[in-house]
């Protein structure tokens, strides 16, 4: 499998936080989700990958042979967007288009207009468009997404794109992910971060779970769903089952958690119900385990 980005020994040290050392890869042709709690290092990793933030050490290789994130050739191929404050707040749609046109070689003004229409931002009244400061958080995010999707890129990197969107817009975002990937079948890649994977489950192919600046698990979603099982059981067996579980939670009536699939037989001896976990359930289990390990 080809990779869009390969990360070798990447670290970033702050006074109170350390990212890495990270060694991983983002598969080409898929949508990869960075999943983790706030403060897990998702944004720092994304910022480093996009040239927003410098690194302390390590190397990143893009598209097989590009390593200099400061080069224009690479910058033109990456479409990056943050959730908050991506553009100055006094900007309007036209200001954004003017700026993006200078900032990148592949910004398509007409496409930006179409995407704004599709996302239903701007020109509602037919009057001059509003500045970002007068928009709701959700509309601001839609505008950012329209701007970044109006560029013809090979790698889309979005920091928390779904968090301020309403359910309908989030569904539209998932559609746009699939559209982006299918437009040039197998060549384009998406990396996005989220702390709420539920609504993005059906647009996620590969998942990287982060906690405390480290990667705690990663893999293709379908493989992870085979590697782990979701276990429900009666409270009386909670303690007996615990050694075979990765993480579990529960109350007086029963417990729930995830376990490795290889422990399925053991666990079924405790009268448990075993299912394939959803990505959301997997995330909770894996992140809870990471928290307990701390």
């Amino acid at each position: 499998m080809e990779n869009a980005v390969v990360i070798n020994g990447l670290t970033k040290e702050y006074k109170d936080f350390k990212l890495g050392e990270l060694n991983t890869a983002i598969p080409r042709g898929f949508a990869t989700a960075l999943i983790g709690a706030n403060g897990a290092g998702k944004t720092t990793l994304i910022d480093i990958l996009c040239g927003v933030t410098g690194r302390t050490s390590g190397e990143t290789v893009y598209f097989g042979d590009m390593t200099d994130i400061d080069s224009d050739a690479l910058r033109n191929r990456i479409g990056y967007c943050s959730a908050a404050n991506y553009f100055p707040l006094d900007w309007k749609l036209t200001t954004i288009a003017d700026s993006m046109e200078i900032g990148f070689d592949n910004f398509d003004r007409a496409k930006f207009g179409l995407l704004c229409k599709r996302f239903k931002v701007g020109e509602k009244t037919g009057k001059k468009s509003k500045s970002l400061v007068k928009m709701s958080d959700g509309n601001r995010m839609r505008t950012y997404l329209a701007a970044v999707l109006a560029r013809d890129t090979d790698l889309l990197v979005l920091d928390e794109p779904g968090s301020s969107l309403d359910p309908l817009a989030r569904d539209m975002l998932c559609d746009m992910f699939r559209e982006y990937l299918s437009e040039r079948d197998g060549e384009r890649t998406i990396l996005f971060s989220t702390h709420n994977i539920a609504d993005m489950e059906f647009a996620t192919d590969y998942a990287i779970f982060m906690a405390e600046g480290r990667i705690v698990e990663q893999g293709f979603v379908e493989d992870l769903k085979q590697k782990y099982i979701l276990v429900h059981g009666d409270a009386e067996y909670a303690e007996k089952a615990r050694p075979f579980m990765l993480s579990q939670s529960g109350g007086r009536s029963g417990f729930e958690g995830i376990a490795l699939a290889e422990n399925a037989e053991m666990l079924s001896a405790f009268d448990t119900a075993i299912e394939t976990p959803t990505l959301q359930q997997l995330s909770i289990g894996i992140l809870r385990k990471a928290e307990e390990d701390e």
């Binding site: 224009d72 990056y80 970002l132």
Partner: peptide, 19 residues
């Protein structure tokens, strides 16, 4: 500045610091 609105966007455009 990076934390100000637009700060991150400006750090990703062509030319980077030169711009």
């Amino acid at each position: 500045e990076k934390h100000m609105p637009g700060g991150k966007f400006f750090r990703t455009v062509k030319g980077g610091f030169d711009t």
